[in-house]
Nucleic acid binder design. Structure first.
Length: 581
RNA sequence: GCACCCGUAGCUCAAUUGGAUAGAGUGCCUGGCUACGGACCAGGAGGUUGGGGGUUCGACUCCCUCCGGGUGUGCCA
């Protein structure tokens, strides 16, 4: 029989099939296969308990009936425990076959690729132009990139779109300040974005103090939105400068996009949005603004979704509607995922409600809409992060500091390396640490920014995982020959540590599935850390280079498979691996 | 006011969505390279899951209530 990649699913299917032939079971029965506590087995089926409850049956008897009907099987031992759990303990031969069948990348990729690929648009990072990226942007950028990799690994077609904030009210103020100060955008010095940020701050101060200044700034915005050539040219230059500064960060982080349309891309479509929504009676005038209410909703019956401000200008609700429509129409997106701060949850809930009504009215099929929100990075005062002078920590500064600290550690171990090699390793380690620190906790939780937390290199961290990978490479280097031939002669796993590691490896598909379904990379992090831990324990206990070919073979197979999974897993987190550290 | 999120070991976090005796890291204590690399490994101490009540075979998870922290709530994104 061919070894199935997802053993949990294999057990699930087997139980369903068996239950179908037993009269007391019906279609409501869900086996609920879960990874079992190590004390009880490898997988467990919890499903008989809730089913027995619903049918007023004895759960232990029900479980017994079910396992008595299971066909003869050499793959796993089955037993009943406690109130009616069914435990499955995999035979060593089963683990062995699985390892042999799924130790290489191509095998894994083929096994994970879905038969129903979807076109998914991933909207993430999305910084505002004319501003520097600060630590707050790290979450959307890193989570988004990780999700795109996970979705692709599962066989989906992903389009990554950096939805820049490049068309807001801020440009009126900025253009006003640029003109008043007679600034030459081609001559802003080596920190052009910092200059622009400063200009904006000054401009903002002026308009608060002076009514005439406020009026002029508004006029600049109207001129820009009206297509004024001079203002458009300045705006474009600001956008270009901003993109350059973003690219610097994205290069460091290994993040890329297919598009960076930004809000400005949709500026000519806002009128048709108003018309369409008005013609379908979805929106209404209220206090001079065009708004959408949702009477069926407890909160949004009263809290409006403003799609046109009372001064006639569009806002991000308008461009988000246009963007959604565009992605559905032009890219034929079947799902759109937005990765943003949790404070925007109301906005997206309203956007989704409005879009569903709109698409229904136009008889268009609406994509699946997912708001992947994350918690805020806080300062010591438990408020959204700010440094002492009121400016958030710049993202490049965080990344530079991470690289600096990693450089010290690399130098300590290998002072003789070339500067390029030190830099390469320090980037992988330092940036990996930062990414992992963020990705490894549930994204919905806020956390207090701390250098100590983000730059930790011991324990449950990226360097620990990278170290495990480097150790496997080290073993293979010592081997001095391709392991494949030796692996051919592998015997069954024998020792405690071998079995424990093999057992952990078979849970990889479960971890990937969970992280992808929930759009939560931390599930994968937890798994990878456990895998690396079991591997570390294994190579400390069981020497790989031993004369017995069967023993050496299985240990090499375990090393090879562990390496493959750690490398794929880290790649899904956007973290680089090294062959030596 | 209304709505939402959060509260788990000294600290930072998990807990397979209602499953078995709540697990890791860090810090603290003890031990381990003449070994394939010590960013490591083995072990120990550390808990009334904010408090109280309820639902049930079973609750960190669901419901009610109270306490504490945070966010959103009409013209920023």
């Amino acid at each position: 029989m061919e070894r199935s990649y997802d053993i949990a699913k294999e057990i699930h299917d087997q139980l369903i099939k068996t239950a179908e032939a037993i009269p007391v079971f019906d279609s409501e029965f869900d086996p609920q296969i879960r990874v079992a506590d190590e004390r009880f087995g490898d997988f467990q089926a919890n499903g008989t308990l809730p089913f027995a409850k619903k049918k007023q049956l004895n759960p232990r008897d029900l479980a017994k009936t079910l396992i008595d009907s299971l066909p003869e099987n050499k793959e796993w031992e089955v037993s009943i425990a406690g109130p009616g759990f069914i435990n499955f303990k995999l035979a060593r031969t089963c683990l062995y076959q699985w390892l042999k069948a799924f130790s290489h990348r191509e095998q894994i990729e083929a096994a994970l690729a879905t038969k129903e690929p979807k076109r998914v648009t991933l909207d993430f990072s999305s910084p505002n132009t004319a501003k520097q990226m600060h630590v707050g942007h790290i979450r959307s950028t890193i989570i988004g990139e990780s999700l795109s990799r996970l979705l692709k690994l599962n066989g989906h077609q992903v389009t990554k779109d950096n939805h820049l904030g490049d068309w807001g009210t801020q440009f009126g103020i900025l253009l006003y300040a640029i003109k008043r100060e007679k600034i030459d955008l081609n001559n802003l010095g080596d920190q052009p974005i910092a200059r622009l940020e400063n200009l904006y701050r000054i401009g903002n101060q002026w308009i608060k103090e002076n009514k005439q200044a406020l009026k002029t700034a508004r006029e600049e915005l109207v001129k820009l939105q009206g297509g004024d050539e001079e203002n458009l040219r300045l705006w474009q230059k600001i956008r270009d400068l901003s993109m350059e500064s973003f690219e610097e960060v994205y290069d460091l982080l290994g993040v890329s996009f297919d598009h960076a349309h930004g809000e400005s891309f949709y500026r000519d479509q806002v009128d048709s949005i108003y018309q369409s929504l008005e013609s379908h009676g979805i929106c209404q005038e209220d206090n001079g603004a065009l708004v959408v209410f949702h009477p069926e909703h407890k909160r949004f019956a009263k809290q409006p979704f403003i799609i046109r401000k009372s001064d006639g200008a569009s806002n991000y609700a308008t461009t988000d509607l246009a963007t959604l429509s565009y992605r559905s129409k032009e890219w034929r997106s079947e799902q759109i995922i937005y990765v943003t701060d949790g404070r925007q949850r109301d906005h997206f809930e309203q956007l989704f409600l409005t879009s569903r009504k709109w698409f229904e009215a136009e008889a268009r099929k609406i994509p699946v809409l997912s708001h992947v929100w994350f918690g805020t990075i806080l300062g010591e005062d438990n408020k959204a992060i700010k440094t002492r002078d009121g400016q958030p920590i710049k993202l490049v500064d965080l990344l530079d500091e991470a690289i600096r600290r990693a450089t010290q550690m690399v130098l300590e171990k290998n002072p003789e390396l070339s500067p390029e090699e030190i830099r390469r390793r320090a980037c992988a380690i330092g940036l990996g640490a930062v990414k992992y620190a963020d990705l490894s906790q549930d994204r919905t939780l806020d956390y207090v920014f701390s250098w100590e937390k983000l730059l930790a290199m011991q324990g449950n961290t990226a360097p620990y995982l990278q170290y495990a990978v480097a150790r496997v490479h080290s073993i293979f280097r010592k081997l001095n020959t391709s392991p494949d031939e030796l692996i051919e002669k592998a015997g069954l796993p024998q020792t405690e540590a071998e079995r424990k590691l093999a057992r952990k490896l078979i849970f990889f598909p479960t971890a990937i599935k969970q992280a992808t379904q929930e759009l939560k990379p931390h599930f994968l992090c937890t798994y990878l850390f456990e895998l690396a831990t079991d591997f570390s324990s294994f190579y400390n206990q069981d020497k790989v280079m031993v004369p017995e070919v069967e023993v050496q073979g299985i240990r090499l197979l375990l090393c090879q498979t562990t390496q493959t999974y750690l490398e794929i897993g880290l790649e899904m987190l956007g973290i680089e691996t090294l062959t030596e550290m």
